[in-house]
Amino acid sequence: MSENTKIYDFMGYRKIATMFSAILLVISIGAIAVQGLKLGLDFTGGSLVEVGYQQDANLTEIRDQLEAAGFQDAVVQTFGAPTDILIRLGADHDPKLGDKVLAALQAGGDTSIELRRNEFVGAQVGEELREQGGLGMLLALFMIMVYVAFRFQLKFSIGAVAALAHDVLIVVGFFALFQVEFDLTVLAAVLAVIGYSLNDTIVVSDRIRENFRMMRKGSPTEVLNASLSQTLSRTVITSVTTLLVLIALAVFGGEMIHGFALALLVGVLIGTYSSIYVAANALVMMGICKEDLMPPPKEEDEVLDEMP
């Protein structure tokens, strides 16, 4: 074991961290319950048309043009650039919708407008996707719990899943609170956050297990502090490299994957925090001790001794 690493008293702040997590969770759950998610087309069903202008587009003018053409319920907004316009329409579908919208806009005299994207998702498909998404997330959590319980121990598995649920709730809560659109790519990002946060938690848990077996003296809290301190530099460096690429993705990746990059950014930050303060904290709460992690005794008489 390493005595040269500076040991930080992580667990000394665990009450504050618990409070912090609790507040974040309350805000997240509150936001999800009160405001709800601003679900994207993938989940709600409906139609959208994206058109490109040569110059910056005038939103009011577009709304007027669309209204004049009979698209009363159209929602018009810019998408990424001021020349790029996203138009959301109700659930009715018409194969020529994109062309019709384009024709309505070009009627104003500007023929350089271009149809960039035209999407339609049936209400039924959206609903199924919502169900499937939630189900997939639960299935992922369950499989991971089983694997960790098998490779480590049940308390670790509960800790890991608690950390994951914490991360997922907060990322989803973030999207609900700020009313950022939640579409299929964001769902994919949330699952990637599960993967990432788990990766982090496993690395920390691995060290905790090792230290419980190797440190002869020391309370569980001390073992946890030592483990977290030893893995700290790795945790920070990996987070930094991942955040670097995610920032590149968020800034240069374009509007279509903006939500994706945002979900991962939030997720990686919260995942890094949770692998220290949620997973380890849960272990303390469940009263993890050396005996939980000792390899099962092998000698026969020892087994007999344990019999009452």
Binding site: A140, M143, I144, Y147, L191, G195, L198, N199, D206
Partner: peptide, 14 residues
């Protein structure tokens, strides 16, 4: 190994 297997698990479900 452990860390990557679990991430792989999430990717497969995805």
């Amino acid at each position: 190994f452990d860390a990557n297997i679990t991430t792989l698990l999430a990717a497969v479900i995805l």
